[in-house]
Design a protein around this nucleic acid. Sequence first.
DNA 1: TATTGTTATACTCTATAACTATA
DNA 2: TATAGTTATAGAGTATAACAATA
Lengths: 150, 150
Amino acid sequence: MTATSLDTCARDVLEAVPLVMHAVRTEMRGNRGADLSVPQFRALRFLHRQAGASLSAAAEHIGVTLPSMSALVDGLVARKLIARGADPADRRRIVLTLTPRGASVLERARGEAQAHLAEKLAALSPEERACVAQAMGLLRAVFMPEEAGR
Amino acid sequence: MTATSLDTCARDVLEAVPLVMHAVRTEMRGNRGADLSVPQFRALRFLHRQAGASLSAAAEHIGVTLPSMSALVDGLVARKLIARGADPADRRRIVLTLTPRGASVLERARGEAQAHLAEKLAALSPEERACVAQAMGLLRAVFMPEEAGR
DNA sequence: TATTGTTATACTCTATAACTATA
DNA sequence: TATAGTTATAGAGTATAACAATA
């Protein structure tokens, strides 16, 4: 395979990514018991790594505005998947944490989404999957917000 | 690189795709003059290839229900980017076509999104971009709805 | 005055259920 | 009766603008 031009690569990403994303969203939305939107899933995943994060930290990581994140959190709190706590050190801040139920819903959603993707990816050869996995790593490095080593 | 397990590959896709998607969405939404949501962009792109498609055909391709597609079309018609026509052969059907303005907005949105992606992808080496491009082709093949050879 | 969140408001996306018109 | 679309309704995602509380 020869070097690929920037524009060709960008065009390919623009063709393929929305397609895959749609499959992921549809799968997550239809999950019995762990029905989550993609932003909800991302928020839970973030809080799983960064327990006690503030609303601002979460908003920046997910890539939405404060009001959007506030609304997202409202929904997750209403479903008892996360808890809003007070920060004793700075009373302007809130402290967000996953509830046990939130952790279990996250694991379930992740597992089912992964299983569904795996089913599709089974159509590829091991070498092709290696290519996809490598590309995902590259894209993650390119689009990951700042520092975020995980 | 050794063969990658199905689950590893699926997990990597689940990590990276939402990240890239978010960048794409944000870019498109912020486009002066060609401000489009991703579903709107996909709908315009579909009609560019399949001029005169019915609502059902579009809904199936985009992957949404009839009512969702009907609403999506409402918005695009209101912005005069597409036109709803009558099908003389079957009066239940509608015929969807891109207006000249719709075609131009599509090209502009595509160009700007591509340019923005290219800017990010410039951080990769030509070999890495080749890997990404190949992976996108594989994913497109896996997730493309049926026949759709283009 | 600057920062952290929330509320108010307004769109779009999306689904299900119920309905209309045509075949 | 079956198919193509629309309308009604509802909830989530998202933004900007305006506000409240704390630092």
